[in-house]
Each structure stands twice: as C-alpha cells, then as structure tokens.
C-alpha cells in the first residue's frame, strides 16, 4: 500500500473535528508559506529596483526663451527598469530646477528656483522598462526668478543648474510605499 493511501486511510478514521483541524492547519500553513515567500521576493526585488531607476537618463533639454513663452520647455529623460515580479504602481515624479549664479550688480551668489513640476508617470509592469521624457512648459516656470536671472546674471561667471527630484511609487499590490529623494544633482550648463 502506498504511503499516501495509508495516510488517507488514517485520516479517514479520524473524528470530524480532528479532520477539520488538520485541513485548517494545512491551509493556513500553505497560505503563510506562500505569503512569506512573496514578501521575501518583494524585499529582494526592491533592492534591485532602486538601482534600476535612472533620472535623468541622458541630457536635460531646457529652453529659457521668456520672450516666446510657448517655446519655453524642460525635457528630462527617465528610465525605470522593473526587473521584479510585481508591478510598480502610481509612479509620481516631482522635479525642481534651481539655478545658481552671481549677480553682476552686487556680486552676490544667488540660488533661485526656476522650475517645479509634479507629474504622474503611471505604471511600470513587472519585467518591463519604461523610457520617457518628463516635460514641463511655461506654466511650470517661476517667471519672476527667471527674469531676475536673465537680467542680472554675470556672464563672465559660472552658472550652475541643480536638479531636486522626488520619486514616489507603490509596489507589491500597493502594500509597499517608497519615496526616493535626491537633492542638488548637478546639471552642467
């Protein structure tokens, strides 16, 4: 007689309450094992995921022509590779661009915010990658600071552009919430 048949006969001879208890134990144990395994995979995937987010993933394009506002634009390329087995949901990106220059009238170092935008990237499915451009138009520019910059910056001194980025997303059936913040990424102007 096979082991399974023996075990089945043993099981059949038990009292109903004991049978229910055994079925409950097997069900709960299986559920717990599967859940723990999924959680473990999620934690392992997360560490990989963080190293596969590239923002900016190339050159940042900026047009600061304030005389033709419709042409004013910022394009920041991004690349997100989701090598895990869960979808990356509700990806939200916030970009701020600061400018650092020397005022030619009083030679003071000034840092001002010229661009700010919060936008949704959407969803990155499991085992897929997304590559796109995070675009902003003149409505996202801080026009007074930009006018000040264009009027008073010292052309002989170096102008620095800094990017502040905040990426927020949800992972593992929206149970894991994470936010990556990077400040003062130097964009070489």
């Amino acid at each position: 007689m096979s082991i399974f048949k023996k075990q089945f006969l043993k099981f059949k001879a038990l009292k109903t309450s004991r049978k229910i208890s055994i079925i409950l134990s097997i069900g709960i144990l299986l559920g717990a094992q599967i859940t723990s395994l999924l959680c473990l995979v999620c934690i392992l995937n997360l560490s990989q995921l963080f190293s596969n987010i590239h923002i900016p993933a190339g050159y940042v394009y900026m047009d600061l022509d304030i005389f033709t506002p419709e042409n004013m634009t910022v394009e920041i390329p991004y690349y997100i590779k989701n090598s895990g087995i869960y979808d990356l949901d509700e990806i939200e990106l916030e970009i701020k661009i600061n400018i650092n220059y020397i005022n030619k009238s009083d030679q003071v170092n000034i840092t001002s915010l010229i661009f700010s935008k919060i936008g949704s990237i959407g969803r990155c499915r499991a085992l897929y990658s997304i590559y796109g451009q995070f675009k902003g138009d003149f409505t996202n520019f801080n026009i007074p600071s930009l006018v000040d910059f264009l009027n008073y910056f010292d052309e002989t001194k170096l102008v620095l552009y800094f990017l502040d980025l905040r990426l927020r997303a949800k992972y593992f059936f929206n149970l894991v919430d994470f936010k990556i913040i990077e400040n003062n990424i130097n964009l070489y102007g």
Binding site: F172, V176, D177, F178
Partner: peptide, 8 residues
C-alpha cells in the same frame, strides 16, 4: 530613501 513596509 523613505520606505514604508507596514502593509507587508
């Protein structure tokens, strides 16, 4: 990096 694993 802000990570919220409370859901898990």
């Amino acid at each position: 990096l802000y990570l919220n694993l409370t859901g898990v």
